[in-house]
Simulated scan of single mutants.
Amino acid sequence: MKVLLFLAKGFETMEFSPFVDIMGWARNDYGYDIQVITCGFQKQVISTFHIPVTVDKLIDEIHIDDYEALVIPGGFEEFGFYEEAYHEKFLQLIRDFNSKGKIIASVCVGALPIGKSGVLKGRKATTYHFKEGIRQAQLREFNVNVIDEPIVTDNNIITSYCPQTAPGVGFLLLEKLTSKEKMEIVKKAMGY
C-alpha cells in the first residue's frame, strides 16, 4: 500500500520526516507493505528554513486509487506555505481522497487546507494552538468544530496541533493502515 506525502512550498521538515521514518522502519525492519510517495507542485520543494527536497511525483501525476492515505505536513506562511496549500488543485485532491473514504492525516497547520477544501465542515479537528489561537480561529471559519487537543480524529481525518505531534500522527496512521499490535512493535523498536 502507498501513502501520499504532500509537500507544499514552505512545509516543515520536522512534520514531514516522522512519516518517512515510521513507515520506513515498518517496511524495512518488519516487512509491512507500506511505501511513502512524496508529492509537490514542483520536483524540488523548498521547505521552511530553505531545505530543498526532491519529490517522487508531481501533483498532476497522482491517481487517487493508487494510495491508501494522504499526509499533509504544515508549514510557515512567511515561507509561502499557503500559496500551494490553498491551491485549488490541492484542495480538489483532498476532496477526492475524502470522497473515497481514504485516510487524510495532517500536522499543525496542515489542517487548514483540509478545512478550506470543505471536507471538515461540521466535523471535529484541531490545528496550531499558540499565537493567541489565530490558526484555530481560521479553522473555525471553515465551520469546523475545533477541539483544543494534541491529536483529533474524526472518522477518516486525523489532525494535530503542533510539530511535536507529528510522530503521534505517524504512529496513528500506521495503526490505521495495519493494526494496533503491528504499530506497537514499530513504536517500541523506535524507542517511543
Score class of each variant (00 low, 15 high):
Phe6Met: 04
Lys102Cys: 02
Val45Glu: 03
Ile22Pro: 02
Val107His: 01
Phe142Gln: 13
Glu12Val: 13
Ile37Ser: 06
Met14Thr: 14
Lys2Cys: 02
Phe6Ala: 05
Met183Phe: 04
Ile72Trp: 06
Glu68Arg: 12
Val3Gly: 02
Glu12Asn: 10
Ser117Trp: 06
Glu141Lys: 14
Gly24Ser: 09
Val36Trp: 07
Ser179Cys: 06
Gly191Val: 12
Ala137Trp: 03
Ile103Arg: 01
Glu132Pro: 00
Phe16Lys: 13
Glu68Tyr: 01
Thr54Cys: 02
Ile104Met: 03
Asp148Val: 11
Gln44Pro: 00
His87Glu: 09
Gly170Asp: 10
Lys43Tyr: 01
Met190Gly: 09
Asn155Thr: 14
Pro52Ala: 11
Phe97Ala: 01
Ser17Trp: 07
Gln164Val: 09
Gln138Glu: 15
Lys187Ala: 13
Glu68Cys: 02
Thr13Gly: 09
Asp65Ser: 13
Val36Leu: 04
Asn145Pro: 06
Leu70Lys: 02
Tyr82Ala: 07
Ala137Cys: 02
Leu173Tyr: 08
Gln138Val: 11
Gly191Cys: 11
Val109Pro: 00
Gln136Asp: 09
Gly122Ser: 10
Ala105His: 10
Val152Glu: 12
Asp154Ser: 13
Gly40Trp: 02
Asp154Gln: 13
Leu172Cys: 02
Leu58Ser: 07
Thr153Met: 13
Ala137Tyr: 08
Asn156Leu: 05
Leu120Lys: 05
Asp56Gly: 03
Glu84Arg: 01
Phe171Asp: 08
Val152Arg: 10
Phe49Thr: 13
Ala69Trp: 06
Pro18Met: 13
Asp148Tyr: 04
Pro150Arg: 15
Ser47Arg: 11
Gly133Ser: 10
Ser117His: 08
Leu4Asp: 07
Asn28Trp: 00
Ile114Asp: 04
Asp21Trp: 00
Asp60Ala: 03
Ile37Gln: 03
Gly24Met: 09
Thr159Gly: 11
Lys188Asn: 13
Gly133Asp: 07
Val71Asp: 03
Val45Met: 04
Phe97Met: 09
Ala105Asp: 08
Thr13Ser: 10
Glu181Met: 07
Ala69Val: 10
Leu172Gln: 12
Thr165Leu: 00
Glu77Asp: 15
Cys39Arg: 01
Asn156Gly: 06
Val45Cys: 05
Val152Cys: 11
Ile72Met: 14
Glu61Ser: 08
Gly168Leu: 12
Lys89Ile: 00
Gly122Ile: 08
Tyr30Cys: 06
